[in-house]
């Protein structure tokens, strides 16, 4: 019994050592963001801040356009998520429960676009948005984000909704519901966990997007966090490390919040379908 106990402790130590190494860059970011500017360039670096300061956070929030970028990111991500999930729920329901010619082809098209590289679409999309006169707007980003978010959402929701028993819809229809009535009364409530997961993943995808934001927007008022922070704090000659680390932490806050509150839903999401990366 004693030997068993010791090997367990050793195993736990080893496991957590590995976890620590993997997550070290994240911890190091937080540590760095809390160090005073002067301590940043100590050689060798100090592992724990000698003095904890929130000055970088304060400076970022009060003296830079960080909050403007943040709110742009929120607007674009929320708009993309709402649009994409609403459209995808109907589309996925159609793909799972209805029979019409071309349905299988459509499902294949969704999968194909799900795997399609963004760089292939970016040039024609850029030209299209310029011609429509909406380049450099947040709306153009929503349009662009739809290109990867919609296939992703349809694909994920399709596998979620295929897991809802056929009999439920049938029972509702026999009980007096129309097909759409059965959809609203029975399918939608059952799909809710899947819809939440899909919405969360879509939000994260949009929140983290960089390439479209880089190409389609070069006007500061429409920049999102990913491009805004870089243009603001990284120049060829100088990098504001302290503020960058503070910005990195704050950019990750929504993701962390979502992660913490919805972990159960998220792991279910992994089971149901692959996650885009």
């Amino acid at each position: 019994m004693r030997r068993f106990g010791w090997s367990r402790i050793l195993f736990n130590l080893l496991a957590w050592a590995i976890v620590f190494v993997v997550s070290f860059p994240l911890l190091w970011t937080i540590v760095t963001s809390l160090k005073p500017q002067t301590e940043l360039f100590l050689i060798p670096p100090s592992l724990l801040p000698g003095e904890v300061t929130f000055e970088h956070y304060a400076k970022l929030l009060l003296e830079t356009r960080f909050l403007a970028y943040f709110s742009n990111s929120v607007v674009v991500s929320v708009a993309t998520t709402v649009l994409v999930v609403a459209v995808a729920v109907l589309g996925a329901h159609s793909l799972v429960r209805f029979a019409y010619p071309g349905r299988e082809r459509l499902a294949q098209l969704v999968l194909f676009t799900y795997l399609l590289p963004s760089v292939v679409l970016i040039i024609p999309l850029y030209l299209l948005l310029v011609r429509m006169g909406i380049a450099n707007t947040l709306f153009s980003l929503v349009v662009a984000y739809t290109t990867f978010a919609l296939p992703f959402a349809v694909w994920l929701l399709r596998s979620f909704m295929a897991g809802i028993p056929q009999d439920l819809e049938a029972a509702a229809m026999v009980d007096g519901a129309s097909r759409m009535g059965a959809f609203f009364d029975v399918i939608l409530p059952q799909a809710l966990p899947g819809i939440i997961s899909t919405a969360v993943f879509t939000f994260i995808l949009a929140w983290n997007e960089y390439l479209f934001a880089l190409v389609l927007v070069n006007q500061d008022s429409s920049r999102t966090l990913t491009t805004g922070v870089i243009t603001m704090l990284v120049t060829s000659f100088h990098i504001e490390w302290s503020m960058l680390m503070a910005a990195s932490v704050m950019m990750s806050v929504p993701v962390i919040v979502v992660f913490a509150f919805l972990q159960k839903h998220l792991t279910r999401g992994f089971g149901a379908g692959a996650v885009k990366g």
Binding site: A171, V174, D175, S178, G181, D185, P189
Partner: peptide, 28 residues
């Protein structure tokens, strides 16, 4: 459509609506 056939059906899986209470199921 099924709704207009005035038939009631009991399914092998029972097909109870999981998000409704027993009363709501029967009432549906």
């Amino acid at each position: 459509p099924p709704a207009e056939r005035d038939l009631a059906m009991v399914f092998q899986s029972y097909a109870l609506y999981p998000h409704m209470t027993v009363a709501q199921n029967i009432e549906y």
